[in-house]
Amino acid sequence: MATLLFLVQLLFIGTLIVPAYTQRCDLLQNATASNFTVTVTPEAYHANTSYLVTISDNTNLTDSKNVSEYLLQAFSPQNRSVGVWNVAVTDNCSSIDTAVSDATQKTANWTSPDSNISSVEIRAYIIFTDKSVEFKTVMLNTESETTTVQPITNSTSNSVSMVQSSSFFIAVIQLPLLLVTSKLLS
């Protein structure tokens, strides 16, 4: 009986924690490209360097679409999460280190990895209170200045599919647990 009670409690806690944990990351799969400004200083990529990433979204807090959070990610040319975000809150969206800032904090510090890569893609997301999401991509290159690029469908699809597969995996795990628990309780 004690084991059954423990199992039910564990299952209940899991069903509460997993949706809260993945909700922010799940919103990214519906992100649309936007024209807000992302500034990265310094402008060229160098290994083991500290960067200041600033978002200028031109939103007014009286607008019907208020900003809820800003999310930032950094990717290598192989589409892997790289570097370290030096912020108070980070999240792990399908193995992608993500800096999380509230609506009042439009800057974050990022330290590039101590490795020999040619460029880094910085992705900035704005999550609004109505749960809509906009994003912008900035490329840091070793030879040239920072360039703003249109979102690459391939890399965005990869991160979206990782989020989707992660959510599917969680659902697949929870379903048998729910069935076992319902059998034990009946």
Rank of each mutant, 00 (worst) to 15 (best):
T129R: 06
V84K: 07
F75A: 07
S182Q: 07
V89Y: 12
K131Q: 12
D102S: 02
N154V: 08
D97F: 10
M139F: 01
A103R: 03
A44I: 12
R123S: 04
D130R: 06
S144G: 07
S50E: 14
M1K: 02
G14H: 03
L185S: 01
K183L: 15
V138F: 04
G14N: 09
V180Y: 06
T156H: 13
A47T: 02
T137L: 11
S81G: 01
D26P: 09
N35V: 04
T107Q: 01
N92Y: 13
M1I: 12
L7M: 08
L61I: 04
Y125C: 03
E134W: 14
T129M: 01
S94Q: 11
D63H: 11
L140H: 14
E143A: 15
Q29D: 09
D91H: 08
S159I: 15
E43G: 03
V84F: 12
G14A: 02
S95M: 13
S186A: 13
T59W: 06
T39W: 07
S81I: 12
K65E: 04
Q105N: 11
E121I: 15
L184G: 04
T15C: 02
Q9F: 15
D97K: 15
P176I: 05
E145Q: 15
S186R: 10
S64E: 14
L11V: 09
T90Q: 09
L179V: 15
S165T: 12
I122A: 02
A20H: 15
I127G: 06
E69C: 02
S76E: 01
E121N: 07
N35C: 12
T137G: 12
A108D: 06
V89F: 08
T148N: 13
T49A: 00
L7P: 04
